[in-house]
């Protein structure tokens, strides 16, 4: 990735606002996935694009400083979550990847549907974010 002039005020300020909006939208897509268009995959791609925007506005070092973790591990963590979710069904004597859901009365949120499928989707989300960011960072660093 080419070095971008760090004094690009306009871009950086806009980014600061937009990035959060994109992130929020990506969380929305992710959480809405069960009932509306969206889900782990699109959510993950959207979140990654927010980070890409940060990368464009600031340089690689700064983004490393803000998000101080290796995205390869995010990928691994995502896979682990997905597999563990699948294996969780063994505890109830059910076949691999059997999902369950139920309605619970939660504080603040009221009656909410909780499904184990969401856990699996978290795995997907993490993998997508990790993979996209790894690829982009690697190619960016390459230069």
């Amino acid at each position: 990735m080419r070095k971008i002039d760090t004094n690009d005020m306009l871009l950086q300020v806009t980014t600061k606002i937009t990035a959060f909006i994109i992130l929020l939208f990506s969380f929305h897509l992710f959480l809405a996935g069960h009932n509306n268009p969206g889900g782990g995959f699109i959510g993950g791609l959207m979140s990654a694009s927010a980070v890409v925007l940060l990368l464009l506005a600031y340089d690689l070092k700064t983004v490393r400083h803000i998000l101080p973790f290796d995205f390869i591990y995010v990928t691994g963590a995502g896979l682990l979550v997905a597999i563990l979710t699948g294996m969780g069904s063994f505890l109830f004597g059910a076949p691999f990847l059997s999902h369950a859901f139920g309605y619970f009365q939660l504080p603040f949120l009221g009656k909410t549907e909780l499904a184990t499928a969401v856990l699996f989707d978290i795995g997907v989300y993490l993998v997508v974010v990790g993979v996209t960011m790894t690829i982009i960072q690697m190619i960016g660093e390459k230069e």
Partner: peptide, 23 residues
């Protein structure tokens, strides 16, 4: 499966196995 988004339900629930290997 407790979801209205059939595509997503198929992806993560009915046929979650495929998704696991796609990721």
């Amino acid at each position: 499966a407790g979801g209205d988004n059939i595509v997503n339900v198929i992806l993560v629930d009915f046929r979650g196995f495929d998704t696991l290997f796609e990721i």
